[in-house]
Amino acid sequence: MNKLEIIGTAKTPTVNFNPESGILEMKGRSIPENAIEFFKPLVDWLEEYSKSAIDLTQANIQLEYFNTSSSKCILDIFKKLESINKQDEKEVVINWYYEEDDEDMLEAGEDYQSILKIPFKMIEIEE
């Protein structure tokens, strides 16, 4: 299975999904007008990855901004990860990074955490 690599733009995040290491990174900003178009390849990739996921998958999410069009798409990504986490002997951890004074981003992570049944770590970073 191929890596999924997308270079970030002013409106979309950098994506690096690596099926061999199980490290899935999304970093930057996500403010496209129609987020479904941007996120569909990510959801499709995860669907494929879920068939042969390695034992430990780590999703590192470090977003500075995301619009509400992206919010549901990010939840769709997390639900795919949740389904992998339910498989026997598979574990998924979501690492949610937020800047130290960004309470809104922390709350956004907590909102996802409350909806999902999956290990979710809140990681504060310095600006």
Binding site: E33, S69, S114, I115
Partner: peptide
């Protein structure tokens, strides 16, 4: 508002323009 946001976030509904009904709430 936070409760409403989470309910709408998790309702699996998208508009044909890719919106999810969360904008004004947020």
């Amino acid at each position: 508002l936070r409760k409403l946001y989470k309910t709408v976030l998790n309702n699996n509904e998208y508009s044909d323009k890719g919106g999810g009904g969360l904008g004004m709430i947020d």
